[in-house]
Design a protein around this nucleic acid. Structure first.
Lengths: 207, 207
DNA sequence: GTTTGTGAATAGTTTCACAGCA
DNA sequence: TGCTGTGAAACTATTCACAAAC
């Protein structure tokens, strides 16, 4: 199955596998099996094997997967091996929390710039990052930043997305609840916190 | 198609439709069409019609959908018509941001309690909510709280999930990056911010 | 004996195209 | 005419079961 289109769902799971592998590796293990990795992350072993099979032979039959080589290969597929600099726009409650969030580093991300529209915030620092005026967004191109994180109110999100795209950003993590129109070649992933909470009651027993 | 199992993907999209409908309604419209709603939220019109068709007749052929009745029906399907009280555990950066987050109210959610393990935080208030000791979690049952939001560090998340389940919580919104094992009958939805960011580079043009 | 990798079977979802109603 | 609702077709993803590799 080496020469196939990769299912989106497989790509969605790869970071999960990566995290599981990192976890096992930190626990001192040198190798693992699809069964053990599956137990750690809560999926089924054949799913892991199938997903990996799209990219080539990751493991050794009868033995399993070498963790450090597995981590290296998945990192490469996801292009996390080079490191990425992101710009965060909107230093409110959520934006501030993300600036301080330690979880990005494990995947090689760094929030290298922060922007806000509020004059009182501009010039200050938050979690070591200087807050700049939104107007300065247009100068991102020269700063090797190709990722944007949008944590502004709904009403401003499309305008900010346009500005980020204009500044050469190719990937956006969007925390606003509005649909963002972007040109082909730019990928948006939306995290809508209230919406995820909103489908929880559907699955809960009545009461 | 009235007597079918509802696809999970349909349930995932219902809150999106709800938000679009609320948006149009706030803009002053009284009715809409699948085409207009689709444009607002960035999906295709037949997707909307198909999804609604699992639940019955929502619209009028030749005319469209009445917004207030649409909103009422979707709210009912998602069980958002009754209101829900949630407990948040872990008042760190992200937890604090969520306590102050205004977006939950639109869906009828209220964060009615907050818990932390840090003695210095216990007894204080954040966004109007008193911070209680994690040990007090066991008394949740009597407070009409059946939803939990977990914003604690990875290492503690399973323990907190167990405590929430023990206190009668039936739905969990999990922001930690660890897989949570819960009994049948409890639904977990995980938002893993770093993981979503981690699959963005895969989709970005090389550079 | 153990565990991977993968075709084939099954299940689930999206898309189409149009009948039927306002 | 305009728009919904939905079977049927096309597509995508999951699950199985087992041959091949160690």
């Amino acid at each position: 199955m080496r020469y196939h289109k990769i299912p989106d769902e497989t790509v969605r799971r790869l970071p999960v596998y990566l995290r599981g592998a990192l976890h096992l590796s930190k626990s001192g293990a040198e190798s693992t099996s699809s069964q053990q990795l599956a137990d750690v992350i809560g999926v089924e072993p054949w799913q892991i094997r199938k997903d990996f099979s799209y990219f080539g032979d990751f493991g050794t039959p009868g033995v399993g997967y070498n963790l450090s080589s597995l981590i290296k290969q998945v990192n490469k597929i996801l292009r996390l091996d080079t490191g990425h600099r992101a710009a965060l726009v909107g230093v409110g409650n959520l934006g501030s929390a993300l600036l301080a969030f330690p979880g990005f580093r494990a995947y090689g991300f760094e929030i290298a710039a922060a922007f806000d529209i509020d004059r009182r915030k501009i010039g200050r620092r938050k979690a070591g990052v200087a807050i700049e005026a939104v107007a300065a967004l247009s100068k991102l191109r020269s700063r090797d930043i190709r990722l944007g994180i949008i944590t502004v109110p709904e009403a401003a999100s499309q305008r900010i997305a346009d500005a980020l795209v204009g500044a050469g950003v190719k990937g956006i993590l969007n925390f606003s609840s509005r649909y963002l129109g972007v040109p082909r070649g730019v990928k948006v992933i939306t995290i809508d916190i209230a919406m995820d909470l909103a489908r929880l009651p559907y699955y809960m027993p009545a009461g």
